[in-house]
C-alpha cells in the first residue's frame, strides 16, 4: 500500500478558484539567485560550450595526436613504431600549449571556474527533475536521463582525472605512478596499464574508468550542444532540431573516436619506448634552448 498524495489545496470549506497571480513577487523577498535566475541558467548553458566544450575539443584533439601524430610529424629522426612518432608529436603539442599560450594561468582559472560553476549548478538543476524512462521510453527521454547521469559521473571522473594527474594523489593510481608534464605520454601509459610490468587488473580498471568517463563526457557535450540550441532558440522547428541533432551526433562521434583512439593508443603503448622518446626530446629541447640562436 502506497500513501495517497495529499491535496493541500483542498481545504474543507475552501474554494479552489483561481489564485490571484503574483505580480512578479516583490523584489526584496527574492534572493540574489532568484533575481538573476535567467542569467544563471543561461550562464550554465554557456559555460558548457565556452570554455568547457572548446577545451574538451582541444584536449581530445591534443591527446588523440598520439594516434594520428605519426602522419603529421614532418620529419622522423629515429626509426620507431607509429605510436612513438605519435607520442613525439603529442610531446611537441603539449610543450607548445604549455609554453606558447599566453596567460595560461588566467585561462586555467577561467576553465576551472567554469567547470566548478557548471558542475554545482548542473547538479542543483538536475536535482529538480525526476526519472520516468520506464514509462516513457522515448529516445529523447533517455537522452535527458543520460545527460544527468553523465553529468554526475563526469564530475567524479574529472575529479579523479585531475586529482591523480595534477595534484599527485598517487594513492589512487595503481603502481603509484606519478604523472609528470614532461613525461606525459609515458606516465599516462603507466597509469592506464597499472604499472610498468604489462597491463594489470587495476590498470584495466583505470582504463575502463577512463573509457566510461570520456565516453559519457563526450555524450554530455554533444547532447548539451543539441539542447543548448533549443534553449537559446537557435533551432526552432522539429526539422531544424533534427538537422542540428545530426550535426551534434557527427561532432560527438568524431570526439568519441578521438577519445577512444587516445585511450587505446596510450594503454597499448610500451611506456619504456615512450620514456626513451621523451628523454630524447627533452635533451634536444635543452640543447635548442641553450643555443644562443634560440634566444
Amino acid at each position: 500500500m502506497v500513501s495517497c498524495r495529499s491535496a493541500g489545496l483542498l481545504r474543507p470549506g475552501g474554494t479552489t478558484g483561481i489564485h490571484h497571480v503574483m505580480q512578479s513577487a516583490t523584489a526584496s523577498k527574492e534572493s540574489f539567485f532568484q533575481r538573476h535566475y535567467f542569467l544563471f541558467r543561461r550562464l550554465h548553458s554557456l559555460t558548457g560550450i565556452l570554455p568547457i566544450g572548446v577545451f574538451l575539443i582541444n584536449h581530445l584533439l591534443t591527446n588523440s595526436s598520439v594516434a594520428w601524430g605519426a602522419l603529421a610529424l614532418r620529419e622522423k629522426t629515429v626509426d620507431a613504431p607509429w605510436w612513438v612518432h605519435g607520442a613525439e608529436y603529442f610531446w611537441r603539442e603539449v610543450r607548445w600549449l604549455n609554453t606558447q599560450i599566453p596567460n595560461l594561468l588566467l585561462i586555467e582559472i577561467a576553465l576551472w571556474g567554469s567547470i566548478l560553476f557548471h558542475s554545482v549548478f548542473g547538479v542543483y538543476y538536475a536535482m529538480t527533475g525526476s526519472v520516468n524512462t520506464a514509462r516513457y521510453a522515448y529516445q529523447g527521454n533517455w537522452r535527458y536521463r543520460l545527460q544527468r547521469i553523465s553529468g554526475y559521473i563526469g564530475i567524479l571522473f574529472i575529479f579523479y582525472h585531475v586529482a591523480t594527474l595534477r595534484w599527485g594523489w598517487t594513492f589512487l593510481v595503481p603502481g603509484g605512478t606519478v604523472w609528470s608534464q614532461e613525461f606525459a605520454a609515458s606516465t599516462l601509459a603507466l597509469t592506464l596499464r597499472g604499472g610498468s610490468s604489462g597491463v594489470t587488473a587495476a590498470g584495466l580498471a583505470v582504463s575502463l574508468a577512463y573509457f566510461i568517463g570520456v565516453t559519457l563526457l563526450v555524450f554530455h557535450f554533444a547532447n548539451g550542444l543539441w539542447t543548448a540550441a533549443i534553449t537559446w532558440g537557435l533551432t526552432i522547428s522539429e526539422a531544424s532540431q533534427r538537422r542540428w541533432g545530426y550535426a551534434c551526433t557527427g561532432l560527438g562521434t568524431v570526439l568519441m573516436i578521438m577519445g577512444w583512439m587516445s585511450l587505446f593508443t596510450f594503454a597499448a603503448a610500451d611506456p619504456a619506448k615512450l620514456r626513451e622518446m621523451e628523454e630524447r626530446m627533452t635533451q634536444k629541447q635543452a640543447m635548442v634552448s641553450a643555443s644562443p640562436i634560440a634566444r
Binding site: Y37, F38, R42, G129, Y136, G140, Y144, R145, I230, T231
Partner: peptide
C-alpha cells in the same frame, strides 16, 4: 525567465510525444 519558467525545461521532449 524567472524560477520555474522556460529554463526549467530539460528538453526530454516527452510533452510533444504524449
Amino acid at each position: 525567465m524567472g524560477e520555474g519558467g522556460i529554463n526549467d525545461c530539460g528538453n526530454a521532449q516527452n510533452c510533444v510525444k504524449v
